[in-house]
């Protein structure tokens, strides 16, 4: 059995670890709240935009054509992987990496030239470790993505898509389903699904005045919905990261506390053993003298 002093030393260091993880858990909780509010704030916009696009698509008719809807034979695809710059958040980064790897393989099997963009240091490094060298690793979008930051990326993709340089854009990120569930998903953001397919039919139709025409408004809105989709992915990822870190740090703190309990018990026991040994030595010694 280890000496009581050594056990005491270990208990102390575990206590320090518990303090750190506890703090990190609290920070993650505070950040989660903020990220969650931001993700929720974007929701009315998304809902309204989706509904509006559905309505316009109906008005524009089924023969409406737009470059973003058109499915051309794909040759080059872009895969975005969104995760975080920091670790200590459980399986958050590796789940995204796994999803991205699967998607990457799928695209390769379809004989596409795949360009990989990693957002977050972690996912970039993990992909590189898996022998998929990301064409770019961006670390500037931290846990508080702004629309302007994400928009730069989205606009660039849209522009290249319009120019015919890329034919498909997929994004791997962690979707925030609820505080208890976040799943790594891969979604295609370009080309768009035909909006009429997903729009629920609304009840009585009103005769809207379109200014300018429904087709023109639609062609203004479709790129917006792509940009929004990407922004939503970043927001979801930010919320999921904090949730994952909260959970990871909670279990780390719990583990540390368990360990402290065990170590304390071990310390007490070994101290008692030591005392017993010393006592019996003294008693043995005095008995020998009699």
């Amino acid at each position: 059995m280890a000496s009581p002093r050594a056990i005491l030393k270990r208990t102390k260091s575990v206590k320090n670890i518990a303090k750190i993880t506890k703090t990190m858990q609290m920070i993650a909780t505070a950040k989660f709240k903020r990220a969650f509010d931001r993700a929720v704030a974007a929701r009315p916009y998304t809902d309204k935009l989706t509904r509006l696009i559905g309505k316009l698509a109906e008005a524009a008719g089924s023969d409406y054509q737009h470059p973003l809807l058109e499915k051309r034979p794909p040759k080059r695809a872009v895969l975005l992987a969104i995760s975080s710059n920091r670790g200590l958040c459980g399986g958050f980064n590796s789940n995204v990496t796994r999803a991205a790897l699967l998607a990457h393989r799928g695209l390769m099997e379809r004989d596409l030239h795949v360009e990989t963009l990693a957002f977050g240091k972690r996912v970039g490094n993990m992909l590189r470790f898996k022998k998929i060298k990301p064409d770019r690793i961006a670390t500037h979008i931290e846990d508080k993505p702004t629309f302007a930051d994400v928009d730069v990326v989205a606009l660039d993709l849209l522009e290249r898509y319009a120019a015919g340089e890329i034919d498909e854009v997929h994004v791997a990120y962690t979707k925030f389903v609820s505080t208890a569930r976040q799943t790594a998903v891969v979604e295609r953001i370009l080309p768009l699904e035909t909006p009429a397919d997903e729009a629920p039919r609304t009840g009585p139709q009103q005769n809207f005045v379109f200014h300018p025409s429904a087709e023109q408004i639609l062609s203004d809105l479709l790129p917006r919905s792509v940009r929004l989709h990407l922004f939503q992915a970043f927001l979801d990822s930010a919320v999921s990261e904090q949730t994952a870190r909260m959970v990871a740090m909670k279990s780390a703190t719990d583990n540390a506390n368990d360990m402290i309990r065990d170590l304390t018990m071990l310390y007490n026991r070994s101290r008692q053993t030591q005392i017993t040994t010393e006592l019996s030595e003294i008693i043995g010694g005095s008995a020998a003298l009699e």
């Binding site: 509006l52 309505k55 316009l56 009103q206 005769n207 809207f208 005045v209 379109f210 200014h211 300018p212 429904a214 023109q216 408004i217 203004d220």
Partner: peptide, 11 residues
């Protein structure tokens, strides 16, 4: 836009 405006969608 004032109240009772006709339904409209505009850019």
């Amino acid at each position: 836009f004032y109240p009772t405006h006709a339904p409209l969608v505009g850019v």
